[in-house]
Nucleic acid binder design. Structure first.
Lengths: 338, 338
DNA sequence: TTGAAAGCGCTAACAG
DNA sequence: CTGTTAGCGCTTTCAA
């Protein structure tokens, strides 16, 4: 295998200095149109590919944004794709680092830092706030989809989760429902917000809340089984509508209900949360609350750029976007009972 | 923000040369236990983090494996996670590059090459074989989940897709089915193999095949809508069982059938392909064919290591793994008809 | 077992 | 507008 073509080779072939060739290949101003053309031609002909490690080492800036993802999450994936494209438009590149069962968030962050990322984006990190603050002291940090108490270090971009469940309650109430239960999502900031939004919305309407606890500490929370368990509790005293912590819970609920012969939405309306592809399946047609991922990633990138290019020092104001409600086939007015 | 701690700082703090410190920090043999301890202590205390760009540039080898993924695919995600962990055990690191709608495979591959990856893994690449051969001439290449005609360049690791659909047919036949239709997946190596497997399996059993065409060139292939369309054709002359090109198609099919009042598996058995998380949902309970992702990634990594560390020159023998059948709730013996 | 010196391939100052 | 000169932070001979 032939030695790789270097910048020097290109420069030599054209008869200019490596410095000039470098300017040309980076599209930097300076070189004349003539030199430019010749260098480009030679680079093309020789099959020159710049060595990223070398240019990274030599340049002051890396223009690299690190993104931590749990690659199994569809939402993370969507963010990754959108951030990649958005970053490109601003002249940045995104480095992905995956969290796996064996490879915790700390390890993944280190990888990113070692790769010279200038800023980091974390999606719904579960780390305690002090850890995030500490990290933010090291590198510009954007926390996506996670509320922080009086964030001082990281920039925060998130959707108003409280407003999301409130949206669901509002929708059901307008349809005529008053007995609206909520299937909880357990611990965590997101679960808290969604629950609070439900409780507040119910209170505002003078409705009695009813929160079904999430699966206990034995099982994972916010999964299909959470919904299945909740269904069992529900059967004793059926409300006319249920809001679930997330879509997976809602799907579990739907499944269990179907097996008990309870029709949705005739006997019971169900609302999920997340607007996952799953929810959109014709098969499921789940009415659900969703967030505008594209806007979320755009804001996240704005925050990064404001710090790196805009010279902003501290975190910007918290960005809280509004959720939307996608009405599908699992909600309807309550049955006019006898 | 304080200047980053360098190797020189650590070396100076201990009073040894950077060279020795380097050896210690990489765990290379040479330095005495005493030096070792002192260097490690100092590195820890100063918060030293090696600069990857610099070490990459300086070292002959990068020990980097590039993986191209479409991050929206659950399967790709699973491979990414497993390859990451497996690579770590062999002292390699995985660099992820995503293909997006805007950023084609070629671009993503270039990124990987520029990052000094020593080998590339592509998952089910759709590029024409000559392109793959050409790429394989540049860098050790492993093609995962894609059959190649007499592969000369890349290593190939895949599951026997023909055997997969044959497995499905066999299962249905044993249950007593004879009228077994197949919903096609359109063009592409994988679709061809699955269809061929079906046709051959039917032929071997003296059964008449019936292939329902995939959605035409207007729509994407292998999606829920493919299944929905297929259901319409099916209704004219209902078989007792259907094998679908993939799970998404099967789910579309299930949905359409449910709306027509056809019960599964009582009136019709359905088998999918891929064993996606979707299929495992209690809600769906799809009988489906799957592949052993863990084995697949392990073999892929073996192939990479054989070339890089084992000094193998050409591609190794094609690795073809067996698919498995996950029997769930969408298949049953045919109704004993009147 | 350790240290000195010479790069890895590129960019960034500055001088011409 | 172009070339020269130094590094970026690390690894790697090779000699001590």
């Amino acid at each position: 295998m032939a030695r790789r073509v270097r910048l020097d080779d290109v420069a030599a072939a054209v008869g200019v200095s490596p410095a000039s060739a470098s300017l040309v290949l980076r599209g930097a101003p300076g070189p004349s149109a003539a030199t430019r053309a010749r260098v480009l031609e030679a680079a093309q002909r020789l099959g020159y590919r710049p060595d990223r490690a070398a240019s990274l080492l030599a340049s002051r800036r890396s223009r690299l944004i690190g993104l931590l993802i749990d690659v199994r999450s569809a939402f993370h994936a969507e963010v990754a794709e959108q951030l990649q494209d958005a970053a490109e438009d601003r002249g940045y590149d995104v480095v992905l680092s995956t969290v796996t069962r064996r490879r915790g968030q700390a390890r993944a962050v280190e990888t990113l830092l070692d790769s010279r990322c200038e800023a980091l984006v974390l999606i719904g990190p579960e780390a305690p706030q002090p850890d995030l603050e500490r990290l933010a002291a090291t590198v510009p940090l954007v926390v996506l989809c996670r509320r922080l108490e009086a964030a001082t270090g990281p920039d925060v971009v998130r959707t108003a989760d409280q407003a999301g469940t409130a949206l669901a309650v509002d929708h059901l109430h307008r349809l005529g429902h008053t007995a609206i239960a909520y299937v909880d999502g357990g611990i965590g900031t997101i679960a808290e917000d969604r629950r609070d939004g439900y409780l507040r919305a119910m209170g505002e309407r003078g409705l009695a809340p009813r929160v079904l606890p999430s699966t206990g500490p034995t099982g994972p929370t916010g999964t299909e089984s959470t919904g299945i368990e909740a269904a069992a509790h529900l059967l004793d005293d059926l409300p006319t509508a249920v809001v679930a912590f997330n879509d997976r819970t809602a799907v579990g609920l739907l499944d269990a209900l179907a097996r008990k012969g309870i029709s949705v939405p005739e006997d019971l309306s169900v609302v999920g949360y997340d607007d996952q592809p799953l929810a959109r399946l014709a098969h499921v047609g789940l009415t659900t609350v969703g967030q505008d991922t594209e806007a979320l990633t755009a804001r996240a990138l704005d925050a990064v750029v404001a710090r790196l290019d805009g010279g902003r020092e501290g975190p910007g104001p918290e960005q809280v976007l509004d959720p939307y409600l996608a009405v599908r086939r699992t909600t309807a007015p309550p049955r006019v009972s006898a």
